[in-house]
């Protein structure tokens, strides 16, 4: 294992410290925790958005703290949900009185810790709503599993609900927008290589030189199936098929396509994969109305990518286009300007 780190047990703390310093114009630390908040929080009159979860998915979540998106992000250890304490502290530090929306990726650990935090925050007088994100179609439904995982679709929930909060929606309305996004977004991922958790020091799974892992999550866990390596066009088809089976987007309807890198894949390959996905959507007559390509919801240095499709409607499109100013996502105005 070679990484640009010092003590493997101190990676998250040191990384957050560097992040806070590099982004001091936008973000600040919550008390003496590892949580990060908007430098101008609490923003008066605005519902606050809080997310968090295990570290290792950067820029998610701390990179999305800022105007038009999150008010706070609470990182746990690498791939491990944070405990309730810093979540509560972060919620208190960003609540303007209009309440806090917790955006929680659907993992047992996150669900349990955010649930506890929500209870404790309410005791402190903070009104909390929670939204679970579970966009990963690689996982069978909750009859057989802990339920679908939250993966790259989380970014879209954070952006779009963030825009709703910024325009002044109340807590219930912001939560409802977030739930609409959750209901209309699906993802599926592939790994070309595993990643190595710093304190573990060995890769999370072993993949031969001619194998890829289909249906992976973002925690270095193995996926749905291991198959011989394939080219980008075939991988695109494999990722898209189960998404469109589940989402039912009709010909002529509009979608947002997010091609997300897992951290170790160069941008050029993500753009190439985007091209493959776009060609498949063209064939089906589905209109790509908005798109985003980059390493946004990652698994350390894993090589691979995920495809996310959001079935747009006019309101979601408008909220997606709203300005946002965070370390990892900045938009000046409507698409194309």
């Amino acid at each position: 294992m070679k990484k640009l780190i010092n003590d493997p047990h101190n990676v998250v703390a040191e990384s957050i410290a560097g992040f806070l310093r590099a982004e001091s114009g936008r973000v600040a630390r919550v008390g003496d925790t590892l949580a990060v908040r908007r430098v101008d929080a609490p923003v008066q009159g605005k519902v606050a958005l809080l997310s968090g979860g295990g570290s290792g998915h950067e820029p998610l979540h701390a990179g999305f703290v800022g105007r038009g998106m999150l008010d706070a992000a609470v990182p746990g250890p690498v791939f491990t949900s944070p405990t309730p304490d810093p979540i509560v502290a972060a919620a208190q530090s960003v609540d303007s009185g209009r309440g806090v929306l917790f955006i929680v990726k659907n993992y047992t650990g996150d669900v349990l810790n955010f649930e506890t935090a929500a209870e404790l925050a309410e005791l402190e007088g903070v009104t909390v709503e929670s939204v679970l994100v579970d966009d990963d179609v690689a996982v069978r439904d909750s009859l057989y599993t802990a339920g679908r995982r939250g993966v790259a679709g989380t970014l879209l929930v954070e952006k779009i609900a963030g825009a709703a909060a910024e325009r002044g929606d109340d807590l219930e309305a912001v939560a409802s927008v977030a739930r609409t996004v959750v209901s209309r977004v699906r993802s599926m991922g592939v790994a070309l290589s595993a990643c190595t958790v710093p304190h573990a020091g060995v890769p999370s799974f072993d993949l031969a030189d001619d194998e890829i892992e289909i249906g992976i999550g973002i925690h270095g866990e193995p996926g749905r199936a291991r198959i011989p390596a394939e080219d980008a066009d075939h991988i695109a088809a494999r990722l898209l098929a189960p998404i469109l089976e589940d989402l039912e987007v009709a010909k002529g309807e509009r979608v947002l396509v997010l091609v997300n890198g897992m951290g170790g894949t160069p941008l050029s390959e993500l753009h190439l994969l985007f091209g493959s996905v776009a060609a498949l959507l063209d064939e089906r007559g589905i209109i790509i109305d908005r798109s985003l390509v980059g390493n946004y919801v990652t698994a350390l240095e894993m090589q691979g990518a995920s495809v996310t499709i959001l079935h747009l409607d006019p309101e979601l499109t408008e909220l997606w286009d709203a300005p946002v100013d965070t370390p990892a996502l900045v938009r000046r105005g409507p698409h194309g300007e």
């Binding site: 746990g76 250890p77 949900s81 405990t83 304490d85 650990g109 349990l112 649930e115």
Partner: peptide, 12 residues
């Protein structure tokens, strides 16, 4: 445990 473990095992 609740305030230091995190993950699924902490709350459980």
């Amino acid at each position: 445990l609740i305030s230091t473990v995190g993950g699924a095992a902490g709350p459980l």
